[in-house]
Simulated assay, not measured.
Amino acid sequence: MRTLPKLLPDRSALFLDFDGTLADLAQRPDAVQIPPTLVALLNSLQERLDGALALITGRAREDLEPMLASPWPWPAAFEHGGVRLSYQGHATTARPEGLSRAIAAAQHLVERHGGLLLERKQTSMALHYRLAPSLETLCLSTMKRAVAGSPDLQLLHGKAVLEVKPTRVSKGSAIEAFMKEAPFAGRVPVFAGDDVTDEAGFAVVQRLGGECIKVGEGSTRARHRCPNPEALRTWLADSLLTTHNTEP
């Protein structure tokens, strides 16, 4: 596996995960700290790429807007692609059958055990056990039973989190949809992510001839890696500055 590419290509379509990629992970999702220069960096990258930048995240839009920007300024796929906001501002939503049952099972765990946190979203849910790692096996078995027999639901096991989302959507399908639309179409996709939920995006991007960056440790199909979000942010900023400095 190679380190980061030397520069971000000018004709890139840039896709970025949020937690663990742009921002460091925290014990709770609402405790994530936003670097003070992050919003300006994203705006500058979007301008340089003629709009071809999108966030691809498991977060709900309602969670990220208070932390980053309101009204929301960038194309994005929220909830692993269950909610997608195009460059033109059009939103699409896919709520799966059986989600309420999965949410009820997770809520039952939260009420009985301390240290668990449930995120309810429009098209998905996330059960966090970072503060109670000894409950991982119980949480996993409970959520497996909750989605059993529901073909519209997929259970994902991430970093101290179990997420239930629509089977027919993923970060990969969201990126593929963006790549068929302006201003992303005809560009080389570049996607950075840190978790198992990003692997579907890596598969699509590399099939389309693009480049993928794994942030942090762990097995991956991505061809590039960097150690942490700070290193990725530095690379993005350096790519922006280097390109601007070399323009006539």
Rank of each mutant, 00 (worst) to 15 (best):
E230F: 13
G193K: 00
A26K: 06
T242Y: 14
G209T: 14
A94P: 00
Q154E: 12
D238N: 13
V190Q: 06
D198Q: 01
E136M: 12
G98W: 04
L155N: 02
R84P: 01
T57N: 13
A126K: 02
S86D: 09
E65Y: 06
L68W: 03
T57L: 08
T246I: 14
G89P: 01
A60G: 15
M67W: 09
A13F: 03
R61N: 13
L16E: 01
A54V: 02
R84I: 14
H113P: 10
H113W: 10
E65G: 09
T3H: 14
L38C: 06
L109V: 08
A23R: 00
E97Q: 14
Q33C: 13
E62C: 11
K6T: 14
G81A: 07
A177Y: 01
L162T: 00
S239W: 11
R112C: 08
T57I: 01
E119H: 11
V32G: 07
A177F: 04
S219W: 06
A13G: 10
L232W: 05
A94N: 12
A146C: 07
Q122Y: 06
S173C: 11
L236H: 01
K144Q: 15
M125Y: 07
L240P: 14
E62S: 15
L68I: 11
D10M: 10
L99G: 08
V188H: 01
S124I: 01
L118D: 09
G89E: 06
D198Y: 04
E230G: 13
D63G: 12
R225L: 09
K159W: 12
A148L: 05
A77V: 01
A174Y: 05
C139N: 06
L38S: 07
R145D: 13
